[in-house]
């Protein structure tokens, strides 16, 4: 069979070129197939060269290419190789999904910083579009942070949120109520005029928290109530 592949190499590569537009990778694959066929290193060698193919070509094209080789070369285990291709592709896909998942986690952390800005005062600026997953992880992290720092006031700034619908509104209300259960005041700041109007129309009500115009007045208010508490305790 090896001899046959060597003899037909040029014709084969021409055919494969027609399918995928490239032949260098196919040549590598055929050479490493011939080198390793019947040897102990076969599985591993094939995995490496197939990974190359999978990276370069569409799976359907690879299948067609292997079929073509099978037609030309008697005894070529096209089905067997195709099974290996699928394994390799599966593996590659898994790796990609892992990367996406990791990136999402990185993004969630990047997008929701929590800052201790004053004694007993924490600021959580929200930025961008909130989907349910991000909202969930953000709420968890904020609650942990509040518990760890024993903060008395959390300022949630929504200047960077383009739109608050009932989902985001509902999530914020839930998060505010949870923070209050930790014995911490919540101040929301930075609601834009267009969002204010929309919230009223939607009937989303933030009456459980204090609303301040912007971060500056929110911070001023937060400091004033924490200082008052501090004096009262003495």
């Amino acid at each position: 069979m090896k001899q046959k592949i060597v003899n037909n190499m040029d014709i084969l590569l021409e055919e494969l070129h027609k399918i995928t537009g490239r032949k260098a990778k196919w040549e590598e694959f055929l050479v490493s197939f011939m080198e390793s066929y019947d040897s102990d290193a076969y599985e591993k060698k094939m995995r490496d060269s197939l990974a190359n193919l999978v990276e370069e070509f569409k799976l359907s094209d690879i299948a067609r290419g292997l079929d073509r080789i099978g037609e030309k070369i008697e005894g070529f285990p096209a089905g067997e190789v195709l099974r290996q291709v699928l394994q390799v592709a599966d593996h590659a896909l898994e790796e990609k999904n892992m990367v996406i998942k990791e990136l999402k986690e990185v993004l969630a952390e990047l997008a929701t910083p929590t800052i201790r800005i004053w004694k007993d005062v924490v600021v959580a600026p929200l930025i961008g579009t909130l989907d349910s997953e991000r909202a969930q992880s953000m709420a968890e992290r904020l609650l942990e942070f509040v518990a760890d720092t024993r903060a008395k006031v959390v300022i949630v700034d929504v200047t960077g949120v383009p739109l608050i619908d009932t989902i985001v509104g509902g999530f914020l209300i839930e998060m505010f109520n949870a923070v209050k259960l930790l014995g911490c005041e919540v101040v929301i700041t930075g609601i834009k005029p267009s969002i204010a109007h929309t919230l009223v129309k939607l009937g989303v009500d933030f009456n459980m928290v204090t609303v301040k115009r912007d971060l500056e007045s929110g911070l001023r208010y937060a400091i004033s109530i924490t200082e008052k508490e501090g004096k009262g305790a003495v």
């Binding site: 739109l163 608050i164 619908d165 009932t166 989902i167 834009k192 267009s194 109007h197 929309t198 129309k201």
Partner: peptide, 17 residues
């Protein structure tokens, strides 16, 4: 207007949701 754009896109957000 900006206020109406926000209302319209919020409405679409609800409907799509």
């Amino acid at each position: 207007s900006l206020a109406d754009i926000t209302k319209i896109s919020t409405a679409v957000s609800e409907l799509a949701r």
